[in-house]
Design a protein around this nucleic acid. Structure first.
Lengths: 345, 345
DNA sequence: TAGGGCCTGGACAACGTTGTCAGATGCGGG
DNA sequence: CCCGCATCTGACAACGTTGTCCAGGCCCTA
């Protein structure tokens, strides 16, 4: 009838607890807690004994219990569209760095541009009681987040605004960037300019389209229906769209592409053609400078977006922020050749 | 002296608990738990009342408490080198997808190639009691993980092997890939071939270097000291290294680059030169096909690496795996032009 | 030597959830 | 009309940690 170390349920492989450490060191439970957390009020000798027991048992504090007790998880959630998109890598990394500087971990998830999946992810993160959320929204209705925000989950939206709720937002100047990019083409003599972009239900896509139209209108250039292609994302359809507007009755002499993936595909299409077509793309792409010609782009600073959003999140957690704000970061036109080609009529 | 809803400590903005829901619905605590978890044994009427209370209060189960009780966190940790490196994006995403399929969340961290930071991150994840770990190691001694693995944290290393411990590893065939890539250059007539790679303390770099040397030796081609450049990573130094081996007393006619970042820089250097120099790079890079000439690469499948590792992790959690294993995935030579250039003496 | 202050250490009760177990309720059959 | 059984419900004790609070023991001073 030995007192076996029977444990009630299946657990973390029977990891040692502070109680075990305390027993082994011959001290009280709270003393172990003090040592583990570097709290004062423990003599060097006691501390040494406790530390030895910790090392001997391979004890590691259970943060779940700690979180339960303290109410802060020291972790933030990041919900983005696709972790494997090169645009989100630097953004993600920037958020992580800020989190790290605040001693927080990052929990990461991809929504795959699916509003339901976004919500599912966000709520799972809330159930984990993350201290804050950085969200690149896929959906356009975020009222489901209201109780969470009210309950104190600091939330910042990035790249696209929140829908139906008032929250912090950090955006690029999609409208201005696109407008300037298209104006750049116009300044180089183009009048028949195509636009290929994502679904207009995505805020960034809509804003860039608006920038295109505004620039055309400001220059008094008429826009033909056939020059605008929306909602195409997969390479195949982008290719068809580009080829269509290059070979219609009034073919375009220049194309403005609405995001990095579209740009890459259009570069491929143009590379196959003998007649040069001007191109300006939204988002920078790697090696754009080495292509012939180099690809002129409207670049946004993904890392800066992430950094700004995360900074804002932690300032909100500090309680130094009051009202939600909308922050817009400038874009930068990088000329590399493709946007400066004259129209070849 | 009203019974105010005073709460002991600072907490999650006073979020409602199951107790609150139970009180409002006029049922017992456990009944709420049953409803929340979809357990049987609740009449539809009771369930409806509970559900109403949940909605009214905006209740969300506290997973920290749940984890504490159940012993599983349904989350896995991924420690990689740099989230913003385009190589790790797809890997990360693949791990996430597998985790998602198993109902687990992904906690993500970058080691920045710093062993101390890797350890700090890994241990933080263990304190969170992640169920498993996918680690792209920065350090070469992982004995610190032994107690964790013994305690049941399923651990799989990816891209590079673990140091000093026996654990699951998923690798690309770095040696074979590099050997074949260099042999490809030799087959096209090159004999003076340079190698620019990362620090040899990184396993992948060492293996690729070994592949280079083996191919050269197998072809009976002597290797000069000046043709090998190791430990350079930042663009500036890669540039200098490339220029040095292109302009020495016996300049190379071809270069093999040890990873994607080096390749990009070398492409830039070669683009500035009039005399063509052959190039084969390890890792595929975006738009490599559109450059003039296209960049021939030894491609590894990052997503497949991640998928394989995560699969293995969850199979280990299921208990269907016994001994640690080493899995090696093949690489693929993609010819695009730069590797097929003849030597220009 | 008595009294007071300080320092160290430990007992105890939360935190919010789930597993166990026993009590309550309702229904049908004897 | 009562008993037995099945179904539903709730009280209670964990899970491992931290905050509170009090008990000793020590040293210093009067």
């Amino acid at each position: 009838m030995a007192e076996t170390a029977r444990r009630p349920d299946n657990r973390y492989g029977n990891r040692p607890t502070m109680k075990d450490v305390a027993a082994r060191a011959g001290v009280g439970l709270k003393t172990v807690s003090r040592v583990v957390n570097g709290e004062p009020g423990v003599t060097p000798d006691t501390e040494r004994r406790v530390q030895e027991a910790i090392d001997a048992l391979g004890f590691r504090r259970n943060d779940s219990a700690r979180v339960l007790r303290k109410g802060r998880t020291a972790s933030i959630g990041l919900v983005l569209e696709d972790l494997s998109d090169p645009f989100y890598g630097p953004l993600s990394r920037a958020v992580e760095e800020v989190a790290r500087a605040h001693g927080a971990l990052l929990i990461n998830g991809s929504s795959a541009e699916d509003p339901d999946r976004e919500q599912e992810l966000v709520l799972a993160l809330c159930a984990r009681r993350v201290d804050g959320l950085v969200v690149i929204p896929a959906g356009d209705d975020h009222r489901y987040l209201e109780p969470e925000i009210k309950a104190g989950v600091a939330t910042v939206f990035v790249d696209r605004p929140a829908g139906q709720i008032d929250a912090d937002v950090v955006l690029s100047d999609n409208f201005g960037g696109a407008r300037d990019g298209v104006a750049h083409l116009i300044a180089h003599g183009h009048r028949r300019i195509g636009f290929i972009g994502d679904m207009p239900r995505i805020h960034t896509a809509a804003e860039r389209l608006r920038g295109y139209r505004t620039a055309m209108e400001a220059a008094g250039v008429p826009v033909e229906e056939a020059w605008t292609s929306l909602g195409v994302t997969d390479p195949q359809r982008v290719r068809r769209a580009a080829e269509a507007m290059l070979s219609g009755p009034s073919p375009v002499t220049a194309i403005f592409t609405g995001n990095n993936r579209v740009t890459v595909t259009v570069v491929r299409v143009l590379a196959e053609r003998s007649r040069p077509v001007a191109l300006v793309g939204f988002d920078d792409i790697e090696l754009a400078d080495l292509l012939q010609p180099g690809v002129t782009v409207v670049a946004q600073d993904a890392a800066q977006l992430g950094r700004t959003a995360a900074d804002r999140l932690f300032r909100r957690l500090d309680g130094t922020l009051a009202l939600p704000e909308r922050i817009e970061l400038p874009t930068r036109l990088i000329t590399r050749g493709s946007g400066e080609l004259p129209p070849a009529s």
